[in-house]
Design a protein around this nucleic acid. Structure first.
Lengths: 169, 169
DNA sequence: TATTGTTATACTCTATAACTATA
DNA sequence: TATAGTTATAGAGTATAACAATA
């Protein structure tokens, strides 16, 4: 309380704090669909580029290929993602959403819109546009790929213990 | 690419994306001080209220008391935090920063300022004020405690698998 | 009996390495 | 020999539960 009064939070800290909160809230919503945020991210990445390989997913996510296996497995078992052996190069898979996934994607879209609306309900439309504009400027300046959420795996060295507590000033 | 062109990101997603990025960058900086972001958060919480107990830390962080033990242990061993048995109630500790910690706190302050400056370097002073104002409105609306970073532990149900990939729309 | 903090244990997440099959 | 993907294994992080000391 003393600190918050005398040292108003910096933008970087507020961003980290709100970002974590937004991710938590979103996770709570997707849980109601029986999906983790990771599931949702994967489904979207496959929807955006059907037929892509697990390898390409691993690169975009910045994770090791073995991790993609365990990430796709539950989606495959749930009947949302289909692994088709590539006819050209039978070593890799072509990942596709199943027809069943269409309904789930609709649910996800609704969930995401509700999340966005709830999260920005304290702002008027003009303020939302301002906020998005400012955040977009920073995102581009920081070299973030549009639509790729870094989770908490880190494009940085990634020391152990990250994730709990503070973030900056 | 298609998606980012046709569906500009919502504020909630940008927040989650930038927040994770900010946390990662900050972690990279604190690592150079030999500290994790968690360490920094703990040191600050103790500095803001010297003599507080591990129990109170557990409540503020939303973690279990046993976790606080393993969080404080390394700081104790590093000679930055001292556990003094409370004279009034000898069950609990009063946590204090050691004299050695003063220098570390200075390093942390410098690190945080450098982080903030780098992160907002794409904005002019007026835009920074705007951004902080907008973020503060949302933070208050969402009921976030000033200065308390939720890590990724979640004030929400917290489904497994959270942390990787997406966050919203 | 209730509370502060610790220890022991189990579970989850993730990376590394070894392996299979293709090329 | 090199590449896509899988499996096995090990390490870190965190919660649960049982425990000690104090109230």
């Amino acid at each position: 309380m003393t600190e918050s009064r005398n040292h108003p939070m910096g933008a970087a800290f507020l961003l980290a704090q709100l970002g974590a909160h937004a991710a938590n809230r979103f996770a709570a919503r997707t849980a109601e669909l029986g999906l983790s945020p990771a599931d949702v991210g994967l489904l979207r990445m496959i929807a955006a580029r059907p037929g892509r390989s697990q390898q390409s997913l691993a690169e975009d996510l910045g994770v090791v290929p073995s991790r993609v296996t365990s990430l796709i497995d539950p989606l495959d078992r749930a009947g949302l993602v289909e692994r088709r052996r590539s006819t050209g190069d039978r070593r890799n898979y072509e990942l596709h959403l199943t027809p069943d996934a269409a309904r789930v994607m609709d649910d996800i879209a609704r969930t995401a819109m509700a999340h966005e609306a709830d999260f920005t309900s304290a702002l008027d439309p003009d303020q939302r546009k301002q906020l998005i504009a400012l955040l977009t400027v920073i995102a581009e300046d920081q070299g973030l790929s549009p639509g790729v959420h870094p989770g908490y795996r880190g494009s940085s060295p990634r020391p152990p213990g990250a994730g709990t507590s503070s973030g900056c000033h």
